[in-house]
Amino acid sequence: MTWSWEVFIETIPLIFKGLWITLGLTIACYLFAMIAGFFWVFMSRIPIKPVNWLFRWIAEFIRSTPPLVQLFFIYYAWPVVPVIGVTLNPFVAAILGLGIHFSTYTSEVYRSGIESVDKGQWEASTALNLSTAQKWRYIILPQAIPPTIPMLGNYLIIMFKEVPLASTIGVVAMLHLANDYGAQYYKYVEPLTVVALFFLLLSYPSALLISRLEKKYNRRFDKKTATL
């Protein structure tokens, strides 16, 4: 087997079609993970020891086991679970699977943001008689979220690179298209190289952008904590 530029050129438009699906899926999974991340934070703040112990370990379990197996669980096993089981299409299964997996990461990001807010901010808002909801809305979250933006941005890039896992349960995006092409013509390397290039083309500039953001927010944050 030799490298063929013809095949390479020919597969570019084919893979490009899959790019949009990959991107769409990335964004859907990411939004799910961002929102679901709050769930873990909320659970870990319930002031009942066994409850937040339980949820901490559930999150740890999800975080430290392979997302691929979790995808298979949701796609192949969930439908046959008695009573609560439902059959999901590959798209929804991927959003749930990857979304839940990464929510255990976003929750850690939120937690670090919340913990970085000075204790005095809570006390001052108590002294001003704010309700719990008002403290979160006006004082804590506006300070906790901005410094986490670069970290959350990093997770968007990581998510982008994890999304090809969805091809294993039949989501037809870039990787799946490449493998299909390979199976048909027994030419794998060229389409796979095209896939890799698309990933590189998108994630490298994004990473540069994030590290810019990181510097900006770190500076702002330093200034804030230095002066309270």
Binding site: L128, S131, Q134, Q143
Partner: peptide, 24 residues
């Protein structure tokens, strides 16, 4: 009034003063 001020760093001086009367 606290030893270390505990002003809200993300709000202007005026907003710091207006927050509690408006929302509480």
């Amino acid at each position: 009034v606290f030893q270390h001020f505990n002003l809200f760093p993300h709000m202007t001086i005026l907003e710091n003063c207006m927050l509690a009367p408006t929302i509480v």
